[in-house]
């Protein structure tokens, strides 16, 4: 039922060109009682959030017990999640275009996407932690907390790019994902900055002796 409510919400918006003004209007389309609606969602805002969040969860779940995915490096995991999520958004592209037509730049989305951001972090944080434990990425203490934010911003950036993309089969978005995720991962992974700190530490230790 939950999914039905969400897809009806999307349909409603697209057909009428505006979101339902109240729960009653949406329930009428679904022949659903308001009482039942509230057992699934607390408000229309929650339904709206769920449009993206349920899709993210579906993607994350699909890979959670995938053996091949588990064997990937962190970069490949991130790429795979990005590709799969953008792919799953295709079926609601019209809705997203309508909903986010005012997005001028990727940062505008941050506000509108808090729920997605949280869902994303729930999935990605454990992946980052285990990569860090296994030494695949450096543990930069407090700074490491920024990794998940950077990746989340990357996803928002890619979504923004995709909404503006008009290439056949969204080929340019694929290239955008490939390039942007790899760049972000270059910051997340071991890079020149770590070596700089390492050298600094080494020199300081030398002086102390």
């Amino acid at each position: 039922m939950k999914n039905q409510i969400v897809s009806e919400y999307v349909k409603y918006c697209l057909k009428k060109g505006h979101a339902p003004a109240n729960v009653f209007q949406l329930c009428e389309e679904l022949s659903l009682t308001e009482t039942e609606f509230y057992s699934h969602f607390g408000s229309l805002e929650k339904v709206e959030e769920a449009v993206l969040v349920t899709r993210w969860h579906a993607v994350a779940e699909k890979f959670s017990d995938d053996e091949q995915f588990a064997g990937f490096g962190l970069t490949e995991k991130m790429l795979t999640l990005h590709f799969a999520f953008i792919e799953s958004l295709r079926e609601i592209r019209s809705y997203l275009l309508w909903k986010y037509q005012d997005w001028k730049n990727p940062m505008d989305q941050v506000k509108g996407l808090m729920a997605l951001r949280n869902a994303f972090q729930q999935t990605v944080t454990p992946l980052l932690d285990s990569a860090s434990n296994q030494g695949e990425i450096p543990d930069r203490k407090v700074v490491s907390k920024l990794n998940v934010e950077a990746l989340g911003m990357n996803l928002a950036f890619v979504m923004h790019f995709w909404l503006k993309d008009d290439s056949a089969d969204f080929e340019r978005t694929d290239a955008c994902i490939e390039k942007s995720v790899q760049l972000t991962m270059d910051f997340v992974g071991r890079n020149a900055v770590d070596k700089l700190f390492d050298l600094g530490k080494f020199l300081i230790q030398g002086f102390q002796k």
Binding site: T75, L79, F83, D169, D174, E178, Q182
Partner: peptide, 22 residues
């Protein structure tokens, strides 16, 4: 051109051929 990552190769194949290379 930098080499394509594994996931991108798989995706491109899948989108174009309609099946996963695996």
């Amino acid at each position: 051109a930098p080499p394509m990552s594994g996931p991108l190769v798989v995706r491109t194949f899948q989108k174009s051929v309609g099946k996963s290379p695996f």
